[in-house]
Nucleic acid binder design. Structure first.
Lengths: 340, 340
DNA sequence: TCTACTTTCGTGTCCGTACACGGAAGTGTA
DNA sequence: TACACTTCCGTGTACGGACACGAAAGTAGA
């Protein structure tokens, strides 16, 4: 019964991890490995009735069709898989328009003292403060959607915005004649969390610089504060009319549907349009051929992976990749059915 | 202790499922539901030491970089997740060039009498015979990669080839001038399992028919038996030289790298090239800009989902979707890093 | 060396279900 | 009615590890 004794010992030592020196702990782990002893996950979770709780801090979806519903779907799926292991998930939502709500929810999370946190670090200052406290308490956290690079995160799960910009540029470049111009459109309402958009734009320009050297193709950039105003709509129309050489439009954020409405309303056609994100309004214009391409991340997968990362780290004790870029999908009318 | 008694009863009845009428079984399930009794998955798998075995029947990878290594990666990943539940997986490989090896391995699988099967129904006749026997024995089976539509499969996991053809057509159509022609290239070595390729081609033509009506754009189709022969290579070169209006080439199977070699060797450029599948040779030409687009399925994900489907069906008793199309990805130099 | 206190270590119970087992009840036959 | 045989059903043990508990050993101070 030697094995039994060893296991018993190991069990307790690991359990009292904090009271044992690093060296001793490592030695014991070696012994375990030599004995090829692998604890039975089922028995282990059955016996220990400890429950873990994960907290999620993401923006409140602004409607039932809004972007932030999607990560939630993935989070839910992950939850269904890990709940058997005694994992609970608490969702905390903040308003994108109000950084105070972020701070308030962050405090609530700290009060509940979870074993792991998933957050979208939307507001830089508040996020840094929050993860500082998490670090102090040794609570692992995973970034989703956007990143704070020099932090001790467990993992970042999201997109490489720069590359997504480069990709958009290539598609547009391929899709229009050699001598045509390109319009870059910022619908700059979501002022916060702009890092994404800046990176995308950089990537977009970079493509043309690398491909043609500077300024063979004419790129026109405009910024629209409020895409719903008549003024803005007419501004866009006027530019397109006065620049008939514009054959491609790149909308830097997810609101390409505003452009779709304008193009449709004024009956402007023959322009390739590329936008971002599979939200319902965009899908509509994509299917009707007014928008040609949507560059997408995989928000469900991001949500799923975020929870999985915490789970694998805390329960399975696996190594987690600290940067986890999800794929940059090109969605068209032809393949949209297979992107949920 | 009423609950205990009920549970004990239910336990045995479900266990002896075969000996109970459908009506009784359903009634009992209702009772369970009313009592909101959910068996504890952990305790259940711990107590029952029964092990399930799944068999996998797929083509042998022809090299370490070949396509069929990829589903294996997904299968392995799924295995790591489900092995705790007592699931074993046996891999059986057949030669794509020899339908007898398929039959032989199928027989071996039947001998081992597994609880579930994943197969690529590469050879129609042999596959139908095999699944006939599986059906007789009530062993659920999942198709991967290609489908046999009027069979009682648990699920099909793979691509919609027709749509992938349509998508390729769109990309090529967008990428070349209005008056340019398109070359469709069949490297017709893999004679079996051609259904995929036929569907792709159909989809490809369909796009142009729908978009332009018949024959506005000139489409030229040729078939190359042996892409490695000098003769074939010169044939392709001659066509491209004698048809300078060809500005786009569509290769229907995964062997676009043969075309890449020819284009490179003869120094032909200025043509958009689109092919299929993320195999190493193709990736090479994609990165160097000789191939512009690769249309891909997600072979790892297919392997993963195939095992997961069996697992969810047999252990979690979940409903499984009988058709499960994986996404049709467009991969370019710009986003390839994020497709593994 | 003795007492009081701390740390180490082995034992026993429990987690929630599966399944074997054996007694009880039911079925059929002489 | 008695006997043999099948089906039904409740009970007990096992699965493998977690953790509480208490005994044993170790440590320190008087």
């Amino acid at each position: 019964m030697k094995a039994n004794v060893s296991i018993g010992t190991v069990d307790r030592v690991i359990h009292n991890r904090g009271e044992v020196s690093k060296a001793t702990y490592d030695k014991i782990l070696n012994i375990i490995e030599e004995l090829e002893y692998k604890p039975n996950l089922m028995a282990s979770t059955l016996a220990s009735k400890r429950t873990l709780s994960f907290a999620v801090l993401v923006p409140e979806p602004t409607s039932t069709e809004a972007y932030w519903n999607k990560p939630m779907i993935g989070i839910r799926k992950a939850f269904l898989e890990v709940q058997h292991y005694g994992v609970n998930i608490n969702i905390h939502l903040f308003k994108q328009s109000d950084s105070q709500t972020f701070g308030k929810e962050a405090d609530l999370i700290l009060d509940s003292n979870p074993e792991g946190v998933v957050l979208a670090p939307f507001f830089s200052r508040e996020s840094i403060e929050f993860i500082g406290e998490l670090k102090k308490r040794n609570i692992p956290y995973v970034f989703i959607d956007s990143n704070i690079s020099d932090s001790e995160k467990l993992s970042y799960i999201g997109q490489d915005s720069f590359q997504s910009g480069t990709l958009a540029a290539k598609l547009l470049d391929y899709s229009i004649p050699q001598n045509a111009s390109v319009l870059i459109l910022h619908f700059a309402k979501e002022r916060d969390n702009m890092n994404h958009l800046v990176q995308r734009e950089k990537g977009f320009y970079e493509y043309f610089n690398l491909t043609y050297g500077i300024s063979t193709r004419k790129l026109i950039t405009i910024e629209i504060e409020d895409p719903t105003s008549l003024e803005s709509q007419e501004k866009i129309r006027d530019i397109l009319i006065s620049h008939p050489d514009i054959k491609g439009i790149f909308v830097t954020n997810s609101q390409v549907y505003y452009l779709g409405r304008i193009l449709e309303y004024y009956g402007i056609s023959g322009i390739r349009v590329i936008g971002h994100d599979l939200i319902r309004e965009n899908i509509d214009f994509l299917k009707r051929g007014i928008v040609d391409f949507l560059i997408c991340q995989r928000p469900e997968e991001q949500g799923y992976q975020a929870i999985q990362s915490l789970f694998e780290h805390l329960i399975l004790k696996r190594k987690i990749q600290s940067e986890n870029f999800t794929s940059i999908d090109i969605v068209t009318k032809e393949n949209i059915e297979y992107y949920k």
